[in-house]
Design a binder for these strands. Structure first.
Length: 205
DNA sequence: TTATTGGCGCTCATGGCAAC
DNA sequence: GTTGCCATGAGCGCCAATAA
């Protein structure tokens, strides 16, 4: 049986997604949560086949939540649901590793179509995303490993290497080494420039 | 004012592990 | 065997605080 998590702070939209899932994945065990913390807690309880994640939750704003989940649970397909459906937002969501993008304005039939395709292993978006060449920073961020992504988020939060190391349970030397890799992939010279680049993670939807 | 010290950021080299 | 990722240690440079 599929285990699917719906993370959205709007009960009505969670219900709408639940209805779509009932048709796209009959028999699936659907868990609902209004927060990113709830989604993470559910992800930590066991294998999850799909996560539907709102970009704007009470404890998460923008792409940082998506990037964090992708970093901690890289094997779990994440579908972004958002009130925004412009090409740039969709492009960034897919660049950050989303398996699909469902706008909140979508009809129930469209949601079912999208979820069916995504559960079949396909990538689904309402419009053709803009070429990644127009978003070099997002493209580069998308090449980061899960660990590098976590460290970049820590940088963006203004944390010291020592603090990030404590958070991740590794030594400071490890953080430093990963940072070197982050700088190379992002094409920057230091943490300040990396933080500027990482602001793409927090773009509002 | 100058030298010392400690914190911090960063690079390089190396090894372990898993996947292909 | 090769490749990619992760982790670590060693060492260097910069900067601010402190003592002489």
């Amino acid at each position: 049986m599929d285990r699917i998590i719906v993370a959205d702070d709007h009960p009505l939209f969670r219900a709408a997604l639940g209805s779509a899932l009932a048709r796209a994945a009959p028999g699936a065990a659907v868990e609902e949560t209004p927060s990113l913390a709830g989604a993470r807690e559910a992800l930590g309880r066991g294998p999850v086949d799909l996560l539907l994640l709102d970009l704007r939750l009470s404890d998460s704003e923008g792409f940082a939540g998506l990037a964090g989940v992708r970093g901690d649970f890289p094997a779990v397909p994440v579908v972004v649901v958002s009130a925004s459906e412009d090409a740039a937002t969709i492009t960034r969501a897919l660049a950050f590793g989303a398996a699909g993008f469902i706008p909140k304005s979508a009809t129930l039939e469209v949601m079912v179509e999208a979820l069916t395709a995504i559960l079949a292993g396909e990538t689904w978006a309402p419009v053709v995303p803009a070429p990644l060449d127009s978003e070099p920073i997002e493209q580069r961020i998308a090449t980061l490993t899960p660990s590098q992504l976590k460290i970049l988020i820590g940088l963006q939060q203004g944390r010291l290497n020592k603090q990030i190391a404590f958070d991740l349970g590794v030594t400071e030397a490890t953080i430093k080494a990963h940072l070197t890799g982050v700088f190379r992939k992002l094409g920057v010279q230091n943490r300040t420039q990396a933080v500027i680049a990482a602001r793409a993670l927090s773009l509002e939807t």
